[in-house]
């Protein structure tokens, strides 16, 4: 069975009967935000800008055939989350595994971030980081209600746990 991938299959449009007889530039649903003026040759090649020199590890989508001219250099991949990200970039943007691994890496990165803070002796100020000051200022009742629900749920959980322990004994 011959492979379709290796076989030369390109069709020359000029050989196709009726090619372009209904072509109409006005039949373009992307008008007006796509301006094709001066784009007769599809502009598939262009004079590339000068290229940024990578000084940190930059992961590249396998759908790119080359590194774009510029890129961000914030937070290169590192740790366990970085390893997962490197594996994720072995799959295309069209593959769910790519995105699901990145989402998983994000969650692991969160834990890494908190552990990193603790190891450096920084205790995260969660109330401040979660904007609880604003909640207190503008939604006192809601905040008190949430705190009461949380306290009640915690008390209930503790009570159930202690009962279970007593039962086991």
């Amino acid at each position: 069975m011959p492979s379709f991938i290796t076989k030369q299959q390109k069709v020359n449009p000029a050989t196709v009967t009726g090619w372009g007889v209904d072509a109409d530039p006005r039949n373009d649903p992307t008008y007006p935000y796509r301006d094709r003026a001066g784009d007769e040759e599809r502009a598939m090649t262009w004079d590339r800008p000068s290229l940024q020199e990578p000084r940190v590890e930059v992961l590249r989508s396998i759908e790119h055939n080359r590194l774009p001219a510029v890129f961000g250099t914030s937070v290169p991949p590192r740790g366990l989350s970085g390893s997962i990200r490197r594996i994720a970039f072995g799959y295309s943007e069209s593959d769910w595994r790519h995105w699901l691994m990145l989402l998983a890496a994000d969650r692991i990165n969160m834990v890494e971030g908190v552990l990193g803070d603790l190891l450096q002796g920084r205790i995260p100020n969660l109330p401040a980081e979660m904007g609880l000051r604003a909640e207190w200022k503008h939604n006192k009742t809601g905040l008190v209600r949430k705190a009461a629900v949380l306290a009640a749920a915690s008390a209930l959980a503790l009570m159930l746990l202690s009962r279970r322990k007593r039962y086991r004994r």
Partner: peptide, 13 residues
Amino acid sequence: CHEVNPEATAVGG
């Protein structure tokens, strides 16, 4: 733009 985002082709920079 195609020259600004290495991590994805579907999204610009």
